[in-house]
Design a protein around this nucleic acid. Structure first.
Lengths: 193, 193
DNA sequence: GTCTATATCTGGATAGAC
DNA sequence: GTCTATCCAGATATAGAC
């Protein structure tokens, strides 16, 4: 992995930047974080940092991808509890939810770098979740009357909506609503409740 | 309503501005709309316009309130179909959904003028919806096993999440998912389907 | 009370030297 | 690959004309 040619150092630098950005945004929030600040955190000038990402928006999308990567590794076992674990994890880093919410809004513009990210994010997310639900149906732990695609899409939208609202009112108990809705779809109380 | 004293003209001006802003944002989208453009649309300078609202963000929140006002008048009969009518209406003006989504993200900051707006929006929205559901339960058209508060909160989050995603991928059929989820909660197909 | 002009500040983008 | 310098847009503050 320690490459000699060109690129080796650049890629490493890029990773450093992403990790620093992830940390800074998690701590201080998205709105409070300027490119200049992120640059300072890794000892670069503003334009030195932008050299690696092209623009602020592309940098932020890269941060989102990096977070996905880390989350995927940390969440473990797929299953209904994984969604709850993910939400619970996110609750620890409101700054990153803030980032996601802003990028989600910005992604409405097809030219925005977050546009493609979001399309893939939703497509992969629903496909994976629906797959899981289908598995539960064959195992007999989810009624075969529910449509896995519908339920997967609905739960992603529900989780997004709850997170946006939670940022505004942190007293909202996201887990509770997710579990109650799960029960409504599955006909069973949420596993482990 | 034609007032003589002070304020009369100013209030009128304000309404003019809001209507022009509503139209411009609906047509060209939120991202594509600058304060200077809105000012031009009503024949004012940028600072002349800001005189009435204090800041760009407060102007946009005022636009949101104005839209609520208009929507409330147009939606008519409360009932499960009203939610669908609202969503269908919104589909005609993606620019305003874009505005809402951006304000929703910005509202995470307690100092942002959209913060209070959103808190009231959600509180009133869920309370009103829950009230409606309770009425249906006494009328026997909704099982008494569902918790009106939970269902109301879930449906608002669901609608928000679907709208955000729809902006990114307009092929998403929001009505369909809303109706399927309704059926899941009520045990009945959606009224009129 | 209504509105303009102007000045200033911040954040982000870009060009070109090294 | 990184810096400095410059530039530009948008937001905000203020003075004052009408």
């Amino acid at each position: 992995m320690v490459k000699r040619g060109p690129y080796g150092k650049g890629i490493e630098r890029r990773e450093q930047i992403l990790e620093a950005a992830l940390r800074t945004i998690a701590e201080r929030g998205f709105l409070a974080t300027s490119v200049a600040e992120l640059a300072e955190a890794v000892g670069l000038s503003q334009s030195g940092l932008l050299h690696y990402f092209g623009s602020k928006e592309e940098l932020f999308v890269a941060v989102l991808r990096k977070r996905d990567e880390i989350d995927m590794a940390a969440i473990g076992e797929p299953g209904p509890e994984a969604l709850i674990r993910l939400i619970r994890r996110n609750t620890q880093v409101p700054g990153l939810i803030e980032l996601f919410t802003h990028m989600q809004a910005a992604a409405a513009d097809p030219r925005h770098p977050a546009h493609d990210y979001m399309r893939v994010h939703y497509e992969r997310g629903t496909a994976g979740f629906a797959e899981l639900l289908r598995g539960m149906q064959t195992a007999g732990t989810l009624p075969s009357t529910v449509d896995p695609e519908v339920m997967a899409t609905a739960f992603m939208a529900l989780a997004d909506g709850l997170q946006s609202r939670w940022l505004i009112d942190p007293s909202l108990d996201m887990e509770y609503y997710l579990q109650r809705c799960w029960a409504q779809f599955s006909g069973e109380p949420f596993p482990g409740t």
